[in-house]
Design a protein around this nucleic acid. Structure first.
Lengths: 119, 119
DNA sequence: CGTGATACTCACTTTTTAGTAAGTATGCAT
DNA sequence: ATGCATACTTACTAAAAAGTGAGTATCACG
């Protein structure tokens, strides 16, 4: 096993490393929505009705910190903040797309019908 | 969002569904090791020194239950149990390979040198 | 002076996932 | 009878991830 440390955390393999950056319940859904358009905080939220403010904020912050998205603040009142994907984020989109397609296949195998369009 | 239920759990998207089947710390490492050979419980363990018995057993059981691997028990003493990958498991290997390659790329971007061969 | 709009922040609880440490069954060899 | 090998179980604990519910700042508008 090719173990290694990053930020004081021990990783066992590259998959684990990748998933620690873009895994979890919300990071891929966020990136996916930003893949071809810039969105404001409120727009992201409207499009992901079950995400909470806390989750949305922390996940956006982490994605920004690690270079997957860009955060642009417009100094107006009420506040306006836009999120857009970076080059690094775009690379992630390719894998996300593959995992997503695989997920769709698996769902079929498990007898789950696609319930609606995946926006 | 294409929400759907499976086994009483609410999923928000296909990615989440896929990751619930083959995600977590140990499932991909296990599948990866079985991709081209049959291994016994003890061999898997020897090859993943940090996994505990509890984790190895539960993960193997779940992978078997969902059709990614096959468990063969030889009624001998001491016990002998072999694990092999199924067709469904082989499909997973393809995505795992893609995620793994992506992980390696990301590691480079983050300045992490490959510490050893990924067995 | 109170309300609304937007993008948060904070303290806390719950749920999920992973890890620890110890124990079990079987039958052969000594 | 004791120990050894293999593949597990079980009860418990710890750590990580996610969710809850409430609160904050700013300024324009009426």
């Amino acid at each position: 096993m090719p173990e290694f440390l990053f930020n004081n955390k021990l990783y066992y393999n590259p998959v684990e490393f990748a998933m620690d950056r873009i895994g979890g319940t919300w990071k891929m859904p966020i990136l996916w929505r930003l893949k071809d358009k810039i969105l404001r905080y409120g727009e992201l939220k409207k499009d992901m009705p079950r995400i909470t403010d806390k989750m949305l904020t922390t996940q956006l912050r982490e994605l920004e910190e690690e270079g997957f998205i860009t955060r642009t603040v417009y100094p107006v009142v009420p506040p306006k903040v836009e999120y857009s994907i970076t080059e690094r984020g775009k690379k992630a989109i390719m894998v996300i797309d593959q995992i997503r397609n695989y997920g769709l296949e698996l769902m079929k195998e498990f007898g789950i019908e696609e319930p609606a369009k995946d926006k």
